[in-house]
């Protein structure tokens, strides 16, 4: 179960993500579903990617936006549970340590906003069987094949 020491792991094979104007955009490459995390989502996603525990995320947001940590931790836990239920992350090793050296994206929002996760399925049919697909392109590729007969 989730607790404040939980660290989430992003699956780089399965999920592609980008932070755009403070919002995180995620796509599950295996099923073509894509997501947005609005509010303070972009920053939270970056912290998850850098191995922060849920408590460390709440600490960081609390300091950044001067809001009570208890308010933030509840939002972070709810978001974590939604990300898990959508298979966008897995639970990692709580004893690992966060990568606090890497610079985090400057969040464009000036105030804290509860992160909201939205799912979009309108392009799932189009993405479903179009590369990149996890597990598809790991066969060896010969770069200079013999020309076929013409």
């Amino acid at each position: 179960m989730l607790n404040e020491n939980t660290r989430l792991i992003t699956d780089d094979q399965q999920v592609a993500a980008k932070v755009m104007d403070g919002e995180a955009i995620l796509i599950n490459l295996s099923n073509g579903l894509y997501y947005s995390i609005a509010g303070t989502g972009g920053m939270i996603w970056s912290l998850i990617e850098n191995g922060y525990s849920l408590e460390e995320i709440a600490d960081t947001l609390s300091r950044q936006f001067s809001v009570p940590k208890q308010e933030v931790i509840s939002d972070v836990r709810q978001l974590a549970s939604k990300l898990l239920s959508e298979s966008l992350v897995t639970v990692g090793d709580s004893d690992a340590s966060a990568n606090t050296d890497s610079s985090l994206p400057h969040d464009v929002s000036t105030s804290y906003e509860t992160p909201t996760l939205k799912k979009f399925d309108d392009m799932a049919d189009m993405f479903a069987l179009d590369p990149p697909l996890p597990g598809l392109a790991d066969a060896p590729v010969i770069e200079n094949p013999k020309r076929s007969q013409e």
Binding site: A16, K18, E23, I27, L29, Y34, M123, D130, P132
Partner: peptide
């Protein structure tokens, strides 16, 4: 060409949508 598609290519389509 499509087998050279990367996650970034896929994201670029979604970014356009947003």
């Amino acid at each position: 060409l499509t087998l050279k598609a990367t996650k970034e290519d896929r994201l670029s389509v979604v970014v356009e949508k947003f």
